[in-house]
Amino acid sequence: MLIEIQDLCYTYGEGTVYEVMALDHVNLKIGEGEFIGVIGHTGSGKSTLIQHLNGLIKPTSGRILFEGKDIWEEGYDRRSLRTHVGLVFQYPENQLFETDVLTDVMFGPKNEGLTKEECEQRAKMALRQVGISEDLYKVSPFELSGGQKRRVAVAGVLAMDPEVLILDEPTAGLDPGGRNELLNQIKYLRDKRGITVILVSHSMEDMAVYANRLIVVHEGKIAYDDTPRNVFTHHRELEKMGLSAPQITYVMHDLKARGLEVDTRALTVNEAARSILMALSLRKSMKTAEAQEKQD
């Protein structure tokens, strides 16, 4: 196992009046090359959970293992862990600080101790991957638009070349085009280079398309941990948690309720269209067959 979470609990403000139990006995195993989606209502503990994975938060109780080693053991090198597990924060544009875009992206590789040339090479590649054009390399990061800042911040983590990439709502506030571009790029990295991806998102549609495993967090506990297809069959329960299944799931359920024999487990619009067309043509051929029978 690449990452293993054992019986993890975390309480904010322990010992004060404002104690909040953000994670409650979480167990999780994450394998190499997985594309994991994490969903959950606001305040369910998603961000808290993923910050444990690269040792930014110390568990109140429980253990985190990376490649079999406890990351909070005496003498464990958590700084080098962070080059293996890259974390893109929610609203990462707040972390930009350098005088120009390229130097800012080079911050991560530089901290790894790479030479200047290597850093620059890494930074340029990362910027290309997130679709920042070369004429922006020397611009101050504070002069960029919100979406551009977001991309630069994502590049800042990509440039560290992590084996595990964790993204906390990376697409919030991006236009639909930019959103698909970013997610496709992440999927490409995973398919091509075999990195493991953990993506926190509120978009069920994105989860349906990209994730091959979906984890639903509810009040600090893991409610579901399965393929998106199986998780979305629980759409009633998801609604009780303030979540929902993709729109298309509802359409399919409606159609089925009205007597069309469609596959309610369809995940994407394409799948759904195929299933509907098939059901329709089946119905049509049945009708013609019936009509034929009557005539005979």
Binding site: N54, L56, F89, N94, K110, M160
Partner: peptide
């Protein structure tokens, strides 16, 4: 809160 967040984000990028 903001300081805490930015600090964590930079630590995640290898800051020391």
């Amino acid at each position: 809160e903001e300081t805490d967040k930015i600090k964590k984000a930079q630590i995640a990028r290898g800051a020391d």
